[in-house]
Amino acid sequence: MADHDASTGDPYQYQGPVIIRGDQVDRSTADQRLLDTRGPSDWVHTDPWRVLRIQAEFVEGFGALAQLGPAVAVFGSARTRPEDAAYGIAEEVGRKLVQAGYAVITGGGPGAMEAANKGASEAGGVSVGLGIELPFESGLNPWVDVGIHFRYFFARKTMFVKYAEGFIALPGGLGTFDELFEALTLVQTQKITTFPIVLLGTSYWGGLVDWLRDTVLAEGKISAADLKMITVSDDVDLAVRLMVEASRHHVSSGGPT
């Protein structure tokens, strides 16, 4: 029920911290819209309702992963075929991360993500898949032991960063680039610390690093220290070792285990 402003006579209404006046006042209540099934259902598509869905994704993600323990996120193309060399490398990455004491987190899809999950699962470790609702991919790969399916990219990316202690990226496309540059930005701005980022595949990633150095750094858009956030290698053992060393440094410096 709306009140009326004593000076103007205009109706006004509080909805939590929000005040609305005049024609914006809603003559129905939230309870009425919820319980009156004969009324319109458009309200389930409104921004306030969407906020609850977003909140639910965070709650489910936090609840599912809170006890995960040390983990590393592995990224790579969903289009990597089983006969590709990168598929076998991703399997090796998953296996060796588990042997080093890590759970493996991927985007849960096919290709390189499936391979990393497979390597982790076959090694007896925890294989996590954080899927995303897309028009051209469906479901999680069969090697995922703990799977969460997200509507929203930003909620999903928060889970990668919060529960992973480092990133290993194999050759990938726009999704891999998105995760890579998200991580680089968070490290550069010190939103996350002691967070190694390894790009596996010198022939694939070398051109990107050359451009960052020869163009972006040369024009003063980043600093030399920013380039040191990235390690490019073909050595899986090196990638895993950098994760282990960063974890040890984090613990010795007083960070949470």
Rank of each mutant, 00 (worst) to 15 (best):
F160G: 13
G207D: 14
Y14V: 05
A183M: 07
V146M: 06
P110W: 11
V18C: 00
F167T: 09
S77A: 13
I20T: 13
A103P: 05
G175W: 07
Y163F: 14
P256S: 14
T37D: 03
S138Q: 15
L130I: 11
G108H: 06
T193G: 12
G129I: 07
K228R: 13
V18E: 02
F177P: 02
T29I: 03
W143L: 02
G129P: 06
T8G: 02
A183N: 06
V128H: 03
G16C: 02
L242G: 10
S252Y: 09
V51C: 14
V74S: 02
A224P: 04
K162R: 15
T193Y: 03
Y152M: 00
Q32P: 00
A239W: 04
V98F: 04
M229V: 02
T176L: 07
R81G: 10
Y204M: 03
Q15K: 01
Y14H: 15
V216I: 13
A71E: 04
R156A: 09
A224L: 08
W211H: 15
K162F: 10
S127Q: 09
I230N: 04
I20Q: 12
H4R: 15
G16L: 08
R95P: 04
L52W: 08
D47M: 10
V51A: 12
I54E: 09
S41H: 06
V146H: 13
I168T: 03
G76E: 12
A78G: 02
F75W: 12
T185V: 06
R50P: 00
A30N: 00
M113L: 05
A64K: 15
P11M: 07
A71F: 03
T176C: 07
V44D: 01
A66P: 00
D5E: 13
D214T: 11
G76Q: 08
G173C: 10
L97I: 02
L184R: 12
H4W: 05
G111A: 10
A73Y: 01
G254T: 08
V128M: 03
V25I: 03
E245T: 12
E137A: 03
I197A: 12
L184V: 06
I148E: 01
F153Q: 15
A85L: 07
D26L: 01
M243W: 05
S233Q: 10
T194W: 07
D237C: 03
L227K: 09
G125T: 03
V209P: 08
A100P: 01
A246V: 07
F177M: 15
G111S: 05
A56N: 14
R27S: 13
G131R: 02
S28R: 09
A73P: 01
R213I: 05
R33W: 00
P82D: 08
L65G: 08
D235E: 08
W43K: 00
